[in-house]
Design a protein around this nucleic acid. Structure first.
Length: 467
RNA sequence: GGCGCCAUCGCCAAGUGGUAAGGCACGGGUCUGCAACACCCUUACCCCCGGUUCAAAUCCGGGUGGCGCCUCCA
């Protein structure tokens, strides 16, 4: 399995630190609003990486934080005349709803900054002791000049950064270097605050990830992931903090997802050209959003558009139809003995093709096309008279691949109070068709359509499903 | 200004030296009472100009166009 490591700018063979185990940290969102589809990309991408690793037999410890202390959350709380806690709790909950909809599995832990304050203070203290940080009137800064490798992830030269920073970064006389960043800042009236050796205040943004990664995964982790805009300064600063403090490499592999754009421009909350996952989910099933994200290689930008979403929805539909048909065959075919041995061998080839794609830096676009090829193969080979055993083999392969991608998971018809009524209408329609009363048959079909039920007349009988 | 990415069919997208996967949409057909589903068929001189090579979408040089980071941001 190869993955593209931002640190070396090359595809590298994945070798875990500890055999059979993967320690993975993914930067999570600041919770002051619903997540947008840009946030959804790392969610889906790295969830898929995790699923594939688990499929390969690794035991994955997956950590994703919530930043629940931040200016934007405080601002929102003030606007609504409530507390930061209320805001962050609300959007963490909403975030989970969206993540669940996107079939993103829960992380092993979802630490929150507010619950890690002691450890944050501990790491800042250690950095001061080791001469990598300094305090000035209640503000603690990281001294970037104390870490010679500063810039190694983003390939930036510290001297050039310092030279260029003067006209970009806010002038701050207390800083020893313009590139130094805040680890702890004193509170302002009306802001939440925590006690620390440097007075009451709150942590800077970067320190939290260093702390949480260390606490839940140890000083050196296998994979650190996030959006490509986090490479500098966030991830660069994390490396500086963690390695200066711990004295060992922070992360072996750094992987970064590309952006989702709108009209080919970066989508962001600050630019205002963003769509929340919730908004899109009102128009398309959540699963289509996931499929849309998987449609491209994770490092390439993808341009969000309604046209593309529709295209993805249609394609996903085809994949899901295949599963519905398969489920139907398994349920109804009478021949139990396996007799399609040569096809079973053919089916195994799709697994190999799929793995080859995923092993090459998680090429989900190629993996998806393998699923399409599998679908066509299944559709061609599960006509009349297939054996139940064979249909089950097809289903097993279908599920193996789609489960890794996290798609087509819930197509089974759920029994509910409407089921009996639907069956009754279908029976009535069959009766009408038998009597060549097509007008009546069509009107029943329209009635079912109005209920959100689609029916298909197959040689084996009538199939129906929701949606 | 510094660093970096991208350009393949109407749309999306694989392919990184051996003669263009796959999906959506479009057109034609089979099946069907009709429809839906499904299947079959059809659709590309790989942004431009040079170069290397027996061979280049793929490597090198030069253009053109687009984008990102350097500031909170997935």
């Amino acid at each position: 399995m190869k993955l593209y490591n931002t640190l070396t700018r090359r595809k590298e063979e994945f070798v875990p630190i500890e055999e059979g185990k993967v320690k993975m940290y993914v930067c999570g969102p600041t919770v002051y609003n619903y997540i947008h589809i840009g946030n959804a990309r790392p969610y889906v991408t790295f969830d898929t990486v995790r699923r594939y690793m688990e499929y390969k037999g690794y035991e994955v410890t997956y950590i994703q934080n919530f930043t629940d202390v931040d200016d934007k959350i405080i601002k929102k709380a003030n606007e609504e005349n409530t507390t930061m806690e209320v805001i962050s709790n609300r959007y963490i909950e909403e975030c989970f709803r969206d993540a669940d909809g996107l079939h993103v599995k829960r992380a092993t832990h979802h630490p929150r900054v507010t619950e890690e304050m002691d450890y944050i203070i501990e790491m800042i203290s250690e950095l001061i002791e080791k001469g990598h940080a300094y305090e000035d009137k209640g503000t603690v800064y990281f001294n970037t000049k104390s870490f010679p490798e500063y810039g190694k992830l983003s390939k930036k030269n510290l001297d050039e950064l310092i030279a260029g920073a003067s006209d970009r970064v806010a002038v701050d006389d207390a800083k020893k270097n313009p590139t130094d960043f805040v680890l702890w800042k004193p509170f302002k009236p009306g802001e939440p605050k925590w006690k620390s050796p440097w007075g009451e205040g709150r942590p800077g943004w970067h320190i939290e990830c260093s702390v949480m990664a260390k606490r839940y995964l140890g000083p050196t982790i296998d994979i650190h992931a996030g959006g490509e805009d986090l490479v500098f300064p966030h991830h660069e600063n994390e490396i500086a903090q963690s390695e200066a403090c711990n004295g060992v490499p922070f992360a072996k592999y750094w992987i970064h997802n590309g952006f989702i754009t709108v009209d080919n421009e970066k989508m962001s909350k600050s630019a205002g050209n963003f769509f929340t996952v919730r908004d899109i989910a009102a128009e398309f099933p959540y699963e289509v959003i996931r499929f849309f994200i998987l449609n491209g290689q994770y490092r390439s930008p993808i341009n969000f558009s309604r046209e593309l979403m529709e295209s993805c929805q249609n394609g996903l539909e085809r994949i899901k139809n295949c599963k519905k048909d398969l489920a139907y065959y398994i349920e109804n075919c009478t021949d139990t003995e396996l007799k399609e041995n040569e096809n079973v061998d053919e089916i195994e080839k799709f697994r190999a093709q799929f793995e080859e794609a995923m092993d090459d830096d998680f090429n989900t676009a190629d993996a998806v096309s393998t699923v399409y090829e599998l679908v066509r193969f299944i559709n061609k080979n599960s006509k009349d008279g297939v054996s139940k055993a064979y249909a089950q083999k097809e289903m097993d392969m279908f599920k193996a691949l789609t489960t890794i991608l996290g798609i087509a998971e819930d197509v089974e018809v759920e029994e509910d109070e409407d089921t009996a009524k639907i069956e009754e209408l279908i029976a009535k329609r069959a009766e009408a068709k038998k009597n060549k009363d097509f007008a009546a048959a069509d009107s029943i079909r329209e009635e079912l359509t109005a209920m959100g039920i689609t029916i298909k007349d197959t040689r084996q009988g009538v199939q129906w499903f929701r949606g």
